[in-house]
């Protein structure tokens, strides 16, 4: 109740213009319940919990981008923007087309910008959010530069609120710091569920929602379904329940309620 009041108050404060824009569901029931989905026309922070979790955080931000891209009206190929700082490229590598395709993103729609410093990253991000052609703008500055202060993120958030563009701030090599963001996700890598054969499975993220302008925070284990391009619950018992169900065959017993909610069908060989 109190949160809703605060939310209303914040809504009157300018940034709340973002409320005019739609939201895109994660597909993951818990995350959707807490956030109402990925808010368009806003800025979202994705922070790796530690240096080795950068790949997982990249994956989570890319998965969010894939959700946003999936909802664009069909017709033209949707474009998305990835602005990186030189340092991020050196430390974490280049975007890799076949891998992006494997995750469910269209590599042909990617526009990549490589900037030398944080100021240029922010400037390019402003232009990207203003441009109205990008379904998602992935902004990846490196480290905790002082240029990346509250004013800078608020500026980006205001532009996003005006144009309806969605910015995903991937904080490579950085830590959580205050910013004018709608949600902040702290991402850790999580062991994948093992398909038959014991090899690594689909990406699983241990996602902690540490800031949420619209409601509660929380922590979920989210699996990215590369085929249907949606987040799904990935807790161990869910996996077991699913296996059991498939083993038992259809019509044998009622499906778990959580599955009905997300409406997912996972095919297993």
């Amino acid at each position: 109740m109190l949160r809703q009041t605060i939310h209303r108050l914040e809504g009157g404060g300018g940034v709340g213009q973002a409320d005019a824009w739609s939201t895109v569901p994660f597909g993951h029931a818990g995350a959707d319940r807490a956030t109402g989905g990925i808010a368009c026309g806003a800025l979202h922070d994705v922070v790796p919990a530690g240096a080795p979790d950068l790949a997982a955080a990249t994956g989570f931000a890319l998965s969010m981008a894939a959700r946003l891209l999936g909802t664009r009206p069909t017709g033209r190929r949707p474009l998305w923007l990835w602005i990186r700082q030189d340092m991020a490229r050196r430390e974490a590598g280049e975007p890799y087309g076949p891998g992006l395709a494997g995750l469910g993103l269209d590599p042909a729609g990617l526009v990549s910008v490589l900037a030398t410093d944080t100021e240029d990253v922010l400037r390019a991000a402003e232009e990207g959010l203003k441009a109205r052609v990008f379904a998602a703008v992935l902004i990846e500055p490196w480290g905790n530069d002082k240029a990346l202060d509250l004013t800078a993120t608020r500026r980006l958030a205001l532009i996003a609120g005006e144009t309806g563009a969605t910015g995903l701030l991937l904080r490579s090599g950085g830590m959580e710091m205050p910013g004018s963001v709608a949600t902040r996700w702290c991402i850790r890598a999580a062991p994948s569920r093992t398909p038959a054969g014991g090899h690594p499975g689909a990406p699983v993220y241990d996602a902690e929602l540490t800031r949420n302008r619209r409601g509660m925070t929380g922590r979920w284990s989210m699996e990215w379904n590369c085929d249907d391009r949606r987040f799904e619950p990935a807790s161990a018992d869910q996996g077991r329940a699913l296996s059991r169900r498939l083993a038992a065959g259809p019509g044998d017993r009622a499906a778990p309620p959580a599955r009905q909610e997300t409406g997912a069908v996972i095919a297993f060989r």
Binding site: A55, Y96, G102, P195
Partner: peptide, 24 residues
Amino acid sequence: DPVAWPQDTRESGDPPERPVRLLT
């Protein structure tokens, strides 16, 4: 014109075969 990327040979349900980031 948009470029056609090679078809993903991965079968549905399989995890991605290639990484999202390739070290330089």
